[in-house]
Design a protein around this nucleic acid. Structure first.
Lengths: 343, 343
DNA sequence: CTGTTAGCGCTTTCAC
DNA sequence: GTGAAAGCGCTAACAG
């Protein structure tokens, strides 16, 4: 089956010159007679010639393609990260292969193989909540393919990472609750294998301690982020003899779920129980009451990770400093902690 | 700079055999002595050999890669479509390059070039709201690269398309409003260059006509989907001497925006004014009041489009029937049209 | 069963 | 300035 794409040979034949000349004309090589170049360019334009990156990649051993591997596409978080990353990649002449893993470790491994087979020049990775083994990513380091983690990072690998100040964010969020008069603050935490979960947990604990509020382990529920379980947890918390007066949730979907349960039960937010989330996902501003949350600079995360990654491109592996970029979160106060009547 | 990846030559040299034998062993060719194959496979495993798809693609003129071009990543709609599409692609051994265009025609054109340069085997496309010229997509047809449109389709190109029954959906949505006793139903419509906008508009008009409700052009506002404008439109509608008692919005973000304005103004939903959206995006179920909407089978759309596309792969261009697959929407009745107290 | 050869589309020496 | 030849990593056609 003959290709339908115009090649350099086609142009060379048509113009009765060598392919090297055509190639030179096309790539802007200086040693070409202007007249020749013009002829080539004109015909290329006319025939709608497109360079075949495949062959170039084969020669240069570079594909100008970056792989992005994500745990999920469910909330607005990761898609927005992709937007930021893709913009930066495009700016530097790279394209992007995205795959999401449905939070499955197996899919993550499979996706990493796809990236390898497609010879990406680098990968930007956020781990699934199941991932405990990193061999498939270490393979990239072994092959000297740059890798940058973001959000859900792998602590044991000495490669660049982009995170937000989860500890500080959680700390601030909890201090905000304390400032509004709350004292029994529960924490719906994420699974401890995720660094973000642990950091947010620590921020939560330290904020309480700093304010001389004893940490009540009964108020801390660690779960696997399977949202269907939130109902049970919230009901349990509300049914305690000494129930919490606030909930700090590890992320917005959890917080939103919690708000809905609390409303069903008929408790008043924020007076009886306040809620704070994390990330400022799409929807958090229009749930009723609107959700107070720590906003993450989503596009910025994508952009930064991509910049870091592309910066590694020409460098030797020895220069891959395990640089950790920490971006700032921002507290967005909404009605789930401080009620403000609409104007 | 030497590649860091193990090649067939490396294995052949190590094992002291020809590269063709190694290649055959690796690809499962029958004519290889089991013993030889075992040796090759073992070493390949040990050296962590990965086939270079680039060279194979160069030979076969197939990349086993599908491009997906989307107008935006803002709502949950397109990311979810990607999930469905990617699953199906992976199932059939294809990987996927995704790019989103920020609703910009120029970016769409640029992205189409990237797809071409990367020699994708096919593309799945949903147009930006700006796109009026389709030359960049027609180039794919000219090169016999299969193309399938979905959601925001190009009517003038005779290629397969995946859509939902926008007309029927709109019709049903409006009839639902009428069934709840509404008579003055406004329509916040999308830009008329989008087929979906026109179809939903027609469904709206016909539902009114069928129920002997005169179409009042003053109640129809066509806009460019720039959400910041919704406030003005809704205030205008509510301020009319004979204001509408319901709004049918072209999509959920518009409807959600409208609900927030209506609440600000202090009108009661759904009694004074009901609202219906389209798509059942993430968030529509937990806005207060929750949004009645026509749900689209998102993942199904992605899966179907990918199936259609991959089905075209071995076919000659003459067999690309301009098949249009229409998937069904489903009315989800929530509190923005029929108030139901929580249990 | 295995080895040799040619070639995918392009760039890049090395000649002239 | 331009052409000829080699080669990126792999497969396929042709010999043995």
């Amino acid at each position: 089956m003959k290709s339908n794409q115009v090649t350099i040979v086609d142009i060379a034949k048509e113009l009765n010159m060598s392919k090297s000349t055509v190639s030179r004309a096309l790539t802007g090589h200086p040693n070409v007679k202007p007249e020749t170049r013009a002829k080539v360019l004109e015909l290329a334009e006319k025939l709608d010639y497109q360079r075949n990156m495949l062959s170039i990649s084969l020669i240069t051993n570079k594909t100008k393609t970056i792989g992005i591997v994500l745990p999920d596409f469910f909330t607005s978080f990761f898609p927005q990260v992709v937007v930021g990353a893709q913009e930066e990649a495009a700016r530097q002449g790279y394209s992007v292969i995205v795959s999401q893993c449905n939070e499955s470790y197996e899919t993550e491994v499979a996706n990493s193989k796809v990236m390898l087979a497609n010879r990406v020049d680098g990968v930007m990775v956020s781990l699934t909540k199941e991932t405990l083994n990193y061999d498939h990513w270490k393979a990239f380091v072994r092959r000297k393919i740059p890798i940058v983690f973001f959000n859900r990072v792998c602590e044991e690998m000495m490669v660049p990472k982009v995170v937000v100040n989860d500890y500080d964010g959680a700390f601030q969020a909890v201090e905000h609750l304390i400032a509004t008069g709350k004292r029994r603050i529960a924490h719906l935490a994420g699974p401890s294998q995720l660094v973000v979960s642990r950091k947010r947990m620590n921020g939560y604990r330290d904020a309480l301690k700093k304010n001389n509020i004893p940490v009540d382990e009964e108020l801390i529920i660690e779960y696997d982020l399977n949202l269907t379980k939130v109902k049970m947890y919230v009901k349990h918390l509300l049914g305690m003899t000494n129930p919490p007066d606030a909930i700090f949730a590890v992320n917005d979907p959890t917080a939103i779920e919690a708000i809905q349960i609390i409303k069903q039960v008929g408790k008043h937010i924020p007076d009886e129980i306040a809620v704070v989330g994390f990330s400022d996902n799409y929807g958090s501003n229009f749930i009723e009451p609107s959700l107070t949350t720590m906003a993450q600079p989503v596009k910025e995360i994508g952009k930064t990770a991509m910049e870091l990654l592309l910066g590694l491109m020409d460098k030797d592996i020895s220069e891959w400093k395990p640089l950790i970029k920490t971006l700032d979160t921002e507290l967005i106060v909404r009605n789930s902690t401080v009620y403000k009547a609409p104007e």
